[in-house]
Design a protein around this nucleic acid. Structure first.
Length: 248
DNA sequence: AAAAACGACAACCGCCGAGAT
DNA sequence: AATCTCGGCGGTTGTCGTTTT
């Protein structure tokens, strides 16, 4: 069975991520960056779909994510932006540094929705709606907006929102900051999975006690098909990073 | 103390748009 | 122009911990 994009579904793990999986994903991304979510899990040694890996990274592992509960300022910002943008969580998240769209969405549904009178749920706004608050009186919006701008130095969406704001995708290579394992990529041009030897080196560093000879459970990582389809087109610069295992 | 209800949040699913072929 | 792949989005579900009965 395959997904529309060709991912093999059989045998893919679902459910909660464990520590080992997290570390594999973090280590891989820090070394090679994000180059292709659907192929990456295999190279990182994960029995997960690309989507699952992406979601885990975006919502939980990305180093610039804030942990912990929302501040009052963040609450106000969410209320304000939701009144303007509706359920466009990614657009709201792009205005709240360190918070993921999923986190904001959950927080909205569990904490903030109940605060609104009659729980109005703004629909996705049209262009004509962009200057109008659907939940707040205008003067309240202004008050909150003033506060939010002062606290977070966020551009005023009432006047600066454009359709380009929808491009809140975060497909960029993450900024390395400490989380669980040491971040080793110093932002050289590390955007490919490299050579077979490099991948084996990566795996020896990550799992020094695992048998990494071809023929083990990761054999298909180095199969001809994968090599030709995925590794082949990419260039690999051996000088781009340190391969000293002690750095992991 | 046990069961039921509830709340919080991580993760999945299906759809869609953009870009490539 | 049609099709395919990929990444992103929002709605929804599942799971687990906490609170209430």
């Amino acid at each position: 069975m395959r997904t529309p994009n060709g991912e093999i579904k059989v045998g893919l793990k679902k459910g909660a991520w464990d520590l080992e999986e997290d570390q594999k994903l973090i280590s891989y991304i820090n070394r090679y960056g994000i180059w292709n979510w659907s192929h990456m899990p295999k190279f990182a040694g994960l029995s997960r779909s690309g989507k699952s890996c992406r979601l885990r990274w975006m919502n939980y592992l990305k180093p610039d994510l804030k942990k912990g509960s929302f501040s009052k300022e963040e609450e106000r910002s969410i209320l304000l932006f939701h009144s303007i943008l509706g359920n466009r969580w990614s657009a709201i998240a792009s205005r709240l540094p360190g918070r993921s769209d999923n986190e904001i969405k959950n927080y909205w549904h569990t904490h903030l929705k109940k605060l609104l009178p009659n729980n109005p749920m703004p629909k996705k706004p049209t262009q004509n709606d962009m200057n109008v608050s659907s939940c707040f009186e205008a003067h309240n919006v202004e008050k909150i907006q003033e506060h939010v701008n002062h606290v977070n130095d966020i551009p005023n969406p009432l006047f600066s929102w454009t359709s380009e704001d929808d491009n809140s995708s975060s497909n960029s290579v993450p900024t390395p900051k400490g989380y669980g394992v040491e971040f080793i990529a110093d932002h050289h041009d590390v955007s490919s999975p490299g050579t077979i030897e490099d991948l084996q080196c990566f795996w020896r560093q990550l799992c020094p006690f695992e048998n990494l000879e071809l023929g083990n459970i990761h054999q298909d990582m180095f199969s001809d098909n994968v090599y030709n389809d995925v590794i082949g087109p990419y260039s690999f610069h051996i000088d781009d990073y340190d391969t000293n295992p002690s750095r992991i």
